[in-house]
Amino acid sequence: MKELVVISGKGGTGKTSLTAAFGSLADNHLFCDTDVDAADLHLLLDPKVLEKNEFIGGSKATIIADHCSGCGLCTEVCKFSAINEDFVVDPIECEGCGVCHAFCPEHAVDFQPRKCGEWFTSTTRFGPMVHAHLGIGEENSGKLVSLIRKQAQILAQENQLELIVTDGPPGIGCPVIASITGASAVLILVEPTVSGLHDMKRVAELALHFKIPAMVCINKYDLNTEMTQAIESETEKLNLLTVGRIPFDPAFTMAMVNGKTIMEYAPSSELAETVNSIWTTIRSSEFLTKKEARILPIMK
């Protein structure tokens, strides 16, 4: 089983549109959306939810006023200044470390695991999909990502699917790290802008740090061909495989408005052909064809 994660460092580079298009071209695969904070893939794939599960994340403290003697010890031990002078916990500031709970002499701190989001197993017109939704302002996105990746792997194994196509989150922090560790390869989608180049270097460094092979695809390359060349020489320097260039085309947005992938919206266009050939390059790359089984070390 192989796992390809599409990431971009910077958001808004067309990652989700492309992931959906690839998924429509792949066979024997399933989708996973690990952008649990702002998941969008379902808007194109219109999944039918088969199973809905609660995600129980970390705990947060609540002080039960009736049991509290007002000794003030909790405010002293809380490193996150989450408890005010009336001994009320601000849930936004609370890190869920449980230190107040451990030290309160009156056992006045309630500290229960909470529901922090939901995750789903679904079917789409292009195969199964595992996705999730993290509650607003919640932490533990990394934990939720690890959970749904694990589920995707189990589902793939059960159904003998060979490939997991994952729509990853933006950035280089906890959800991204959780999305790429142990994956077969990442595809970095980049736009030809100074910020695109800057962010690509950082995710490429991250992939290298976790020893994940990385490929690069340039989207909207014709918006600045000089910058496209700069990106390509950078990828060469970093020894990354450039799999192709996609021109700027409003058809991607129109396809999105219509809830379709580009392959459905404009099947015989030049754009569709470009996406198709990029997918062929990716699919036949050594990272996704190598025989040896990769053990996927997923974090708890």
């Binding site: 958001g11 904070d37 702002a38 936004i92 993290l134 607003i136 302002g137 919640e138 932490e139 996105s141 989150p169 933006p170 950035g171 922090g173 959800p175």
Partner: peptide
């Protein structure tokens, strides 16, 4: 601010 609605953005 960072994108999203989880802890970094908040």
């Amino acid at each position: 601010a960072p994108p999203g609605t989880s802890c970094p953005a908040i």
